[in-house]
Structures are given as structure tokens and as C-alpha cells.
Amino acid sequence: MFSFEPGTFLFEAWVARNQLLAGLAVTAQLSVITIFAGSVIGVFGGVGLTYGPLPIRFLLRVYVDAVRGIPVLVLILFSYYGLALLGIHISPFTAGVVALGGFCGAHMSETVRGALESIPAGQTEAAKAIGLRFTQRLRYVLLPQAVRRLLPPWVNTGVEMVKGTTLLSIIGVVELLLATQQTIARNYLILQFYFAAGMLYVLVNITISQLGALLERRTAHLRY
């Protein structure tokens, strides 16, 4: 098993290393951009869903429910082929970011809304009573408390997004899965390379979970 000859896993992995690492890099990039964009959308979306005036709440509700109700794959196909038919031509990578970012943002919006709504009303009242304005109440009182509550679902969504990037192989984004499939097409080491790719995904996701756990420990004093 550890022999280093053509046809063995180690040899073929060495041959394909650049391709696989490039795929891993694309997966990592997609994940980071998607999770970051989704989190930003989520904060604004969540605040809008919780405190916004009715028209804004309505529009956000339509966005969140529609995007969460549509399979991610459909979102991806639409943002690549659908937008192209409408005259908007974007690269598969960009289409992937749009689809996954929009999907992630919808989930994060609900997460942030839930976290904000779970904060006791007395917190808002106390913040009002000392004369804080809305944006100050959010910044100093509500969002810091919401962070603690939304960390576990944030990690969940993040992990889902990393796995979701594999769907972009359908529209030709050479991320880790497609890079792996291209490698397998040359050497037919199906089990070994899918297993290796799976391990890499697990590694990325464990990193995210650890990051979440670290943040949870650092906010452990946010108790009642």
C-alpha cells in the first residue's frame, strides 16, 4: 500500500497534487466568501425581520421563505443558466457565490432573527431607559447577546455551505469534488480519492466547528 509506483494511491495523489490543492483552495474560497456574505446578509436581514417596518419585513420574509424553500441546486442552475438567458452573463464561480451566498443569507437571517427575538424584552427596555437610540441598542446591547445565541446554528449553516459548494461542480466550477472526479477519470482509484476528498471536507468542517466552539467559550459569560 505504501509503494510509490504508478497506479498506487500515493503516486497518483502526488501526480494530481496541484490539481487537488487548487480544488481545495476553490472550495475554501467559495466557503469563506459565501459564509461571510451570508453572515452580513443575515445580520441585516435578521435585524430587518425583527425590527423593520412592515414593507421591509414583508420583502425579507418573501426572500427568506422563497430561498429556503427552493433546493440549492435549483438556485445554482438558475443563477448560472437562468441569468444568462436574461442577458446577465457571469462566471460559474460568481454564479456559485450568488446562489450559495443568497441561500446562506436566508438561513442566517432566520438565525439572527431567532437570536434577537429570544433576548428578553427587558433588555431593550433597560437600554431605552438609559437613553440609547435604536442603533446603539443594537450595537451595545442586543447584537452582543445575539452572537452567543446564534453561534451553534451559525456553525451548522457554515458546515452546510462548505458541503453545498460541491454542487457547483454541476456548473463546471473546479472545486474539490470536481478536481477529485477529474483525477479519478485518469487513474480510476475511485475509493481512495473519494475517501481522501471526504476527509478533506471533514477537516475543513472540523476547523469551522472548532472556531465556533472557541467563540462560544469566549462568550461563555453571556449567561442569565
Binding site: 433597560a126 437600554a127 437610540r133 451595545y140 452582543p144 447577546q145
Partner: peptide, 24 residues
């Protein structure tokens, strides 16, 4: 408006039944 109300509240103190300290 919001700013005017906040300024007025700042001149009136309030203590609540359930304390409502900021836990963080």
C-alpha cells in the same frame, strides 16, 4: 422622533422589577 425621545429618557431614570442588567 427617536433622538428626541432618547434624550428625554436619558433625563429620567428607571429601575425595573427584573433588574434587566446587561448580562454581557
Amino acid at each position: 422622533g427617536e433622538a428626541a425621545i432618547a434624550a428625554q429618557r436619558a433625563r429620567i431614570g428607571m429601575v425595573f422589577q427584573s433588574f434587566n442588567l446587561f448580562p454581557h
